[in-house]
Design a protein around this nucleic acid. Structure first.
Ligand SMILES: [Mn+2]
Ligand SMILES: [Mn+2]
Ligand SMILES: [Zn+2]
Ligand SMILES: [Zn+2]
Lengths: 138, 138
DNA sequence: CAACGGATTAGAATCGTTCTAATTTTGGAA
DNA sequence: TTCCAAAATTAGAACGATTCTAATCCGTTG
């Protein structure tokens, strides 16, 4: 199987998002979007790329994460000051945050119900509602 | 009126929290807790202290914010990676986050209802539930 | 294949925060 | 009061995550 075929879905995804399918973006997308949904930091992704013998600079990892986010392929989540996570699950859902080790897990979408949202002041429009359930183990 | 009397409530608050009422802690508490509830960053508080001609190092501002948080006088909030806010309102409530200028506002406590919280995996205990309603103006 | 513009890169720079080690202040004991 | 030990403050260095710069590379289009 040629790489062209192997990566056809990802290349299409990138093209649809208006992003050139470069070697780096294809490899990073491959790493992030294969398998299950993930919550990944820039450093984590950079390490994974290195482990997979994909040579990408950290700057490109950041560029790619932000471009993907802007294109709606990822969602950026801030739970602790200092580090951003990027969520490969862009559907409407909420999170457990494990304070012990700082990782995130999805909450099954119907397991949190936010009823009765307030009207934002001054005619502002709601762009997103984030529910973070902070938990501690042991 | 002597300073001793003027600051008596704040000094009591500090003592109750097991913190020595130093000049710096009294001044910072005075700045933060007078007036309405606030969502303030370390840099903002340091600037306010400077403007009020209170000489405090930035390190002490950070120390104080963390000590107050640990003592339950403040609550730390992360809405964007890179910067922490400290909330003088420690009661159970949620927030609007204005993406335009990055400021926070309280949501009247009964205006958000989170019904049916999920059980955390692996016997973890919920320590807090944060709801952030991201809004955009204009 | 040429060429233009977008993408990548190494490394420097920036930013918020934390750390270090020296100095000052506090509160209690004598 | 005076003295001391512990706690608090501080300047500045260090840190970790992220962003910037400006040189080089590569994808696309003609
Ligand atoms: Mn970002
Ligand atoms: Mn903190
Ligand atoms: Zn998620
Ligand atoms: Zn608040």
């Amino acid at each position: 199987m040629t790489d062209q075929k192997r990566y056809a879905p990802i290349i299409g995804k990138l093209r649809d998002a208006g992003l050139r399918p470069t070697r780096q973006r294809i490899a990073l997308a491959e790493l992030m979007f294969r398998g299950e949904d993930r919550h990944i930091s820039a450093e984590m992704l950079h390490n994974e790329a290195t482990a997979a013998r994909v040579s990408v600079s950290l700057a490109t990892v950041y560029n790619t994460l932000h471009q993907f986010t802007q294109a709606g392929l990822l969602r950026e989540i801030a739970v602790e000051a200092g580090r951003s996570y990027f969520d490969t699950n862009t559907s409407d859902h909420h999170h457990f945050y494990f304070e012990n080790d700082g990782h995130l897990e999805d909450v099954a979408s119907n397991d949190v119900v936010v009823s009765s949202l307030p009207t934002p002041p001054g005619g502002a429009k709601i762009s997103r509602v984030d529910v973070v359930i902070r938990v501690r183990e042991d």
